[in-house]
Write a protein that binds this DNA or RNA. Structure first.
Lengths: 111, 111
DNA sequence: TATTATGATTCGCATATCAGAATACGAGTA
DNA sequence: TACTCGTATTCTGATATGCGAATCATAATA
């Protein structure tokens, strides 16, 4: 291996490393029971924050925090309707696939 | 809604809640750059700890910690070969699907 | 048996994450 | 303009997570 190859390989490792960090950040956002429950609640359509509160039986400020985290990652968006904010999945089919995959236990091999 | 329905609905919510917690625990294990890198390193076959160290350029105790976390979740296993421990994916095709999905950006909508 | 190679574990610290409480904000409405 | 409704943000303390350093455990070997 000459020195150019070596540099390229190092660069490749570095690119991968950045890639893994991005993916990990994304997975970390999904890796919370309340946030998964929110995604599940939104899978059949738009819901305002209050509706989500009632569905999940969790306090509003807590849900707002989790919605903000999902928003920052671009996983959910919202529309203003009157004085309500109606949240919806940015990419419903991806999230539905994710939830279905988890349900099927296709990724989760240990149960 | 009578009281039996109410109890059943509560139970349903409770079951879901437990389910989301289990899924979240699993996703949390995946949601770390080093652990994703380990899975990627194992995707084409078995590797002993030292090999993984060299591949990922990370100290051995740190990798052992992450391997233990992946082991506990049932995501990787190992075989003893001489004095080496050779790790492999418990369910290669699931992990390959996961990595491919991340690569394709099919789940990740924000880039 | 002493030594080495290979991994695992423990410890201590720094950082991150989370929940709840309190509060702020902003759009409607009286 | 004051008030209310719906939601967001900030703050604080508790818990969890991640890392490096040191150490331990064990199988192979000299």
């Amino acid at each position: 291996m000459n020195s150019v190859d070596h540099i390229e390989q190092q660069d490749h490792i570095y690119q991968d490393k950045k890639q893994f960090e991005v993916w990990a950040s994304y997975l970390r956002v999904l890796a919370h029971p309340t946030r998964l429950a929110i995604l599940d609640a939104l899978k059949d359509g738009t819901q305002c924050v209050n509706d989500v509160c009632e569905l999940l039986q969790r306090p509003q400020p807590n849900l707002s925090q989790h919605l903000a985290i999902l928003r920052r990652e671009g996983i959910v968006r919202y529309r203003e309707e009157g004085k309500k904010r109606c949240y919806y999945l940015a990419d419903p089919s991806s999230i539905q696939t994710l939830l279905q995959t988890l349900r099927d236990g296709k990724i989760i091999t240990s149960f």
